[in-house]
């Protein structure tokens, strides 16, 4: 790998592709959560970014207030964020299912403002550091590039979680109930399945995924009340590009767009911030229902 590709040193190219893959991992986990929630609740969860931020903060708080380290946080933070999500679903979202879907968007936008505002009040906006766990510090020299161990872990962990979620939804009995309830909740309820419980757990699960992504992100990006706000808008664009019809579609689109963004950072850095939005415009022109979406 000593040659240069189009005048770009391979280290730079591979480095940016890795960075793209990591961003793509977050896009994938977050858009997966949005797709799961949308499938059953018909709500776009605007609070997803805020709950991702909350996952990172819960990990930080567990470490700094209780001395609980990264590995426990990786399990506890998603559970706590998921439980918080279930409270939100029971007390507020469940009142909106019979209304226009736009109200769900407005409600969750309000929730995002509240959560972000509260964290901004108590922790400022400068960002808090979170150490990479000892087992994953350092890196590996692959010959053509230096691979930080933690970044490799993020890619692997998110891929495993995405695959696990896909397997559960597409291949298990519980997933079959879920898919059936997405198609026709009334009929599934008539067969004796507790649909409201299923809806509640689905929202909790989708939100827990966001919390999990937040913990993964904590050592890479500084823990910051605004960390989810801009990310969620990009994830919305990812969801529009992929369409929310298929779980696998949401995951793959997430990874793919992360990589495209990485490539843009190599070949046209000025455009890297907007490349996903440009792709969204192109997809809207040629395939408005999204790459994996079903025509309405």
């Amino acid at each position: 790998m000593m040659f240069e590709l189009l005048g770009i040193p391979p280290q730079v190219l591979m480095g940016q592709l890795l960075l793209g893959l990591i961003n793509g991992s977050f896009y994938a986990v977050l858009s997966l959560g949005l797709a799961v929630i949308f499938g059953l609740l018909n709500i776009i969860n605007f609070a997803h970014g805020a709950l991702y931020m909350m996952g990172a903060f819960v990990a930080w708080m567990l470490l700094n207030y209780f001395g609980i380290g990264y590995w426990w946080a990786l399990i506890l933070a998603p559970l706590m964020v998921g439980a918080f999500g279930i409270v939100l679903e029971r007390t507020m979202l469940s009142r909106l299912y019979k209304l226009d879907h736009l109200y769900g968007l407005l409600l969750t936008f309000g929730l995002a403002l509240i959560i972000q505002g509260l964290f901004r009040n108590y922790y400022g906006i400068s960002g808090l550091p979170y150490q990479i766990p000892a087992a994953l510090s350092g890196g590996t020299n692959l010959g053509f590039m230096f691979l930080p161990n933690y970044r490799a872990w993020v890619v692997v962990a998110s891929a495993v979680v995405c695959f696990g979620a896909w397997f559960m939804i597409e291949k298990t009995r519980l997933g079959a109930y879920l898919r059936a309830a997405t198609e026709n909740p009334t009929l599934v309820g008539a067969f004796g399945i507790n649909v409201p419980l299923l809806v509640m757990l689905t929202y909790g699960f989708g939100v827990a995924l966001a919390g999990f992504a937040g913990v993964l992100a904590a050592p890479i990006y500084s823990v910051n009340p605004n960390m989810g706000a801009d990310l969620i808008i990009v994830v919305f664009a990812v969801v529009v590009i992929g369409g929310m019809g298929s779980i696998m579609g949401a995951i793959l689109t997430g990874y793919m767009l992360g990589l495209v963004e990485g490539l843009a950072r190599v070949f046209y850095p000025e455009g890297s911030a907007v490349v996903i939005f440009v792709i969204m415009a192109i997809v809207l022109l040629i395939r408005p229902e999204g790459l994996c979406g079903r025509a309405a």
């Binding site: 909106l96 309000g110 505002g117």
Partner: peptide, 14 residues
């Protein structure tokens, strides 16, 4: 102020 705006959103919708 952000928190208050959020609360108005939530109450307004509910």
């Amino acid at each position: 102020v952000t928190v208050m705006q959020g609360v108005i959103f939530v109450l307004g919708v509910l």
